[in-house]
């Protein structure tokens, strides 16, 4: 199966080379350089992977959609979304892909909360992630244990159906909405997230909420 690993990247020179080397055995790597001002792009190019260049920074959602469009055009059977900051574990990619290759799901999402060994900071879990998961379950009628986990695998069918229009950080919610609207079969598998920093704080959560609301009005 033709698998593409899409890595959106904005000033990630610290971890990018390691991430690329770790994931390249699992598929063709596409780095979407989202207007980085450091040497991320050169790093990726030197490693011989496909690099798509955003001339200016447009956000993670926008970079993923660019990668998806490219992969779809190249006849991808499976696409994996993978963060450039080293949060995700490359060794878990087969676990995400498996339900798709077995025909059990159209899209598989990683969840930090399916296993009990997760190291999510307490406040991040109970103040941000769990309320966000509850919000998206109530809003879209999905049944998920995690929200805004960027580690996911999409089948060709899902890739055709899902169009990310949320440029910034609201795209995971948009993906959930489109999964439900398009009646795609989805699954969660437990994944491990390594935390380097606190990530999106409470203000980040409000920005996401604002983007979702304005995205709805501005369709």
């Amino acid at each position: 199966m033709k698998t593409f690993i899409i890595i959106p990247c904005y000033n990630e020179s610290a971890h990018l080379a390691e991430v690329i080397n770790n994931v390249k055995e699992y598929g063709e790597v596409i780095v979407v350089d989202d207007g980085s001002t450091d040497n991320s792009r050169q790093l990726a190019q030197n490693l011989g992977v496909t690099v798509l260049e955003h001339l200016i920074n447009r956000g993670q959602g926008a970079a993923l959609e660019t990668g998806d469009s490219y992969a779809l055009n190249k006849g991808a059977d499976i696409v994996v979304h993978f963060d450039a900051d080293g949060q995700h574990q490359a060794g878990e990619i087969p676990k995400l892909i498996k339900p798709i290759t077995e025909g059990r799901a159209d899209i598989v999402m990683g969840s930090r909360f399916l296993n009990q060994t997760g190291q999510t900071p307490f406040f991040k879990k109970w103040l941000i992630l769990k309320p966000a998961a509850l919000f998206q379950n109530l809003m879209y009628g999905a049944k998920l244990t995690d929200a805004h986990n960027g580690f996911r695998a999409l089948s060709h069918k899902a890739l055709e159906k899902i169009r990310i229009t949320q440029d910034r950080m609201a795209h995971p919610s948009e993906i959930i909405e489109q999964i439900v609207n398009n009646e795609l079969r989805y699954l969660e598998v437990p994944v491990t997230i390594r935390y380097y920093e606190f990530g999106q704080g409470l203000t980040g959560g409000f920005k996401i909420l604002r983007d979702i609301i304005f995205g709805k009005i501005n369709k």
């Binding site: 798509l52 955003h54 447009r58 926008a62 660019t66 469009s69 490219y70 009005i217 501005n218």
Partner: peptide, 24 residues
């Protein structure tokens, strides 16, 4: 104004994406 800016941001993204794919 906010809605208009939001819409223009999306248009900019489309252009940036088109340029990225075209260049490749």
């Amino acid at each position: 104004l906010y809605l208009k800016i939001d819409k223009q941001q999306r248009e900019i993204t489309k252009i940036v994406r088109h340029l990225a794919l075209d260049k490749k």
